[in-house]
Simulated assay, not measured.
Amino acid sequence: MTGKSDVPAQYEIYAIRYGINPRRTRGQNFILDARPDEPLTLDFYSWVLIRRGEVIVVDTGMNPAFAEKHGHDMLMSPIEALKALGVRPDAVETVILTHAHYDHLGHLDAFPNARFFMQAEEMNYVTGPYMEKRWFRRAYEPDEITQLVRLLHDGRLELHGRDREIADGVTVHWVGGHCAGQEIVRVRTARGWVVLASDALHYYEEYERGVPFAVAFNLSDMITAHDRIRELADSDDHVVPAHDPRVAGIYPPASQELDGKVVRVDLAPVKSMDSR
């Protein structure tokens, strides 16, 4: 007897709804949309995985200054949301960065003892010749890219290959599309394998209609990513996009106090995914 449990690791997943942009339109979100002037709110999420005291943060939210610069509204600090969930940021040892856009890379300094994980292709992209083109660099902030370089030189950033096991029950997988190094996160939960699609899916609608989001590096990779997501998730009800207001409406809140701001996506949806 080693005392080690043979039960596979299962995580709780908390989706932190830290920001919103109610002024977005369908034309800003989808290429060649038939109703481009119709409003379509954009929500902003980061995530935290918790298992018996083990904590893994997935993306770190958005710097309020950059939210203001890009026209978004902050609902709460993702760092304060972690504290409300009983997570001390300075005690977090593992942070996954699904890509390096400004709304996924804020607050890096809040995790002074963490090791960060990101696709090597994303670092090649954000420090390479594609950044000469305004289209490709528009969702990156140079100060945050500099932080990544510092973390790399400090030995705290691991730039990994396309598929990587982060922990028992947590793996990351390259899909590209939205940016060169876009990855998704597969998490084992009590209800099965959940895929945090991050910006491989901004909205469920992309997945349902097979259409691309408007901010893209490679459209073919973006559409093909839908197949990879379906391959890794136990069902479509196990897929969580990064910016869809429907997420907050179909999943149960983490607590009464956090209703509308933090939801449990390791639990089954309490409403149909088609709810609007």
Score class of each variant (00 low, 15 high):
residue 81 A to G: 15
residue 81 A to Q: 13
residue 82 L to M: 09
residue 84 A to D: 02
residue 87 V to M: 05
residue 87 V to N: 02
residue 88 R to E: 13
residue 88 R to C: 08
residue 90 D to G: 02
residue 90 D to R: 09
residue 93 E to M: 09
residue 96 I to N: 00
residue 96 I to A: 01
residue 96 I to Y: 00
residue 97 L to C: 06
residue 100 A to I: 01
residue 100 A to H: 03
residue 101 H to A: 14
residue 101 H to Y: 14
residue 103 D to V: 01
residue 104 H to I: 01
residue 104 H to P: 00
residue 104 H to E: 08
residue 107 H to V: 00
residue 107 H to T: 02
residue 108 L to C: 08
residue 108 L to I: 10
residue 109 D to S: 13
residue 109 D to V: 07
residue 109 D to K: 13
residue 110 A to S: 14
residue 113 N to D: 06
residue 114 A to R: 02
residue 116 F to C: 05
residue 116 F to M: 08
residue 116 F to I: 04
residue 116 F to P: 06
residue 118 M to C: 12
residue 119 Q to Y: 04
residue 121 E to G: 11
residue 121 E to H: 12
residue 122 E to G: 09
residue 122 E to D: 12
residue 124 N to D: 15
residue 124 N to C: 14
residue 125 Y to Q: 03
residue 127 T to S: 10
residue 129 P to C: 02
residue 130 Y to Q: 03
residue 130 Y to M: 04
residue 131 M to P: 01
residue 131 M to N: 03
residue 133 K to W: 10
residue 133 K to C: 08
residue 133 K to R: 11
residue 133 K to E: 11
residue 134 R to C: 04
residue 135 W to D: 10
residue 138 R to K: 07
residue 138 R to S: 05
residue 139 A to P: 06
residue 139 A to T: 15
residue 139 A to D: 14
residue 142 P to H: 00
residue 142 P to M: 00
residue 142 P to Y: 00
residue 142 P to A: 00
residue 143 D to V: 15
residue 144 E to W: 14
residue 145 I to V: 15
residue 147 Q to L: 07
residue 150 R to H: 14
residue 151 L to K: 12
residue 151 L to D: 11
residue 152 L to G: 15
residue 152 L to D: 15
residue 154 D to V: 05
residue 154 D to Q: 15
residue 155 G to I: 13
residue 155 G to H: 13
residue 156 R to A: 10
residue 157 L to H: 08
residue 158 E to K: 12
residue 158 E to M: 11
residue 159 L to H: 13
residue 160 H to N: 06
residue 160 H to V: 14
residue 163 D to Y: 01
residue 163 D to H: 02
residue 164 R to H: 13
residue 164 R to G: 03
residue 167 A to R: 08
residue 167 A to F: 01
residue 168 D to V: 07
residue 168 D to L: 06
residue 169 G to Y: 01
residue 169 G to V: 00
residue 169 G to Q: 03
residue 170 V to P: 00
residue 170 V to Q: 01
residue 170 V to R: 01
residue 171 T to K: 03
residue 171 T to L: 00
residue 172 V to P: 01
residue 172 V to N: 02
residue 173 H to I: 05
residue 174 W to H: 11
residue 177 G to D: 09
residue 177 G to A: 07
residue 178 H to D: 02
residue 178 H to M: 05
residue 179 C to W: 07
residue 180 A to S: 06
